[in-house]
């Protein structure tokens, strides 16, 4: 480390600082512009498509262009409550059910050794 301030190239430091800070601002300002105009462009496209399909309705003055966050939150909470209240649809009859099985010869008693051996008839 050099503690001699005179040895530091201060003009270079100021240039890095000024350029760096302005580049950070430029990058984010560009993003601001893009995302400020993007919803308008997307809406324009949607409007054109709806007009073509004849479904477009002109918005009256005073209409909210977007649903407010609070309204969304209320709808979300209501849906969440509704869905958390739902259960699987059960028959509500709790009994032992007879299970139907397809026939299988495996371990079938009719093929065991007792049935294969000839039986003596008295």
């Amino acid at each position: 480390m050099s503690y001699l301030l005179d040895a530091v190239n201060w003009p270079q430091i100021w240039v890095i600082t000024a350029v760096g800070y302005s580049v950070v601002f430029t990058a984010l300002i560009l993003l601001i512009f893009v995302f400020k105009f993007m919803p308008k462009m997307l809406n324009m496209q949607l409007k054109r498509r709806l007009k073509k399909e004849g479904k477009y309705v002109e918005r009256t003055e005073g209409d909210e262009p977007f649903i407010a966050g609070e309204v969304n939150a209320a709808i979300g909470t209501a849906l969440s409550l509704y869905f958390s209240d739902l259960h699987d649809d059960e028959s509500k009859i709790i009994t032992i059910k007879r299970v139907e099985r397809r026939y299988s010869p495996w371990s079938s008693k009719i093929y065991n050794i007792n049935n294969v051996l000839p039986t003596t008839h008295r």
Partner: peptide, 10 residues
């Protein structure tokens, strides 16, 4: 102001 809803495309 509450933030507006953002579409999936955005």
């Amino acid at each position: 102001k509450p933030p507006r809803a953002v579409s999936k495309t955005e």
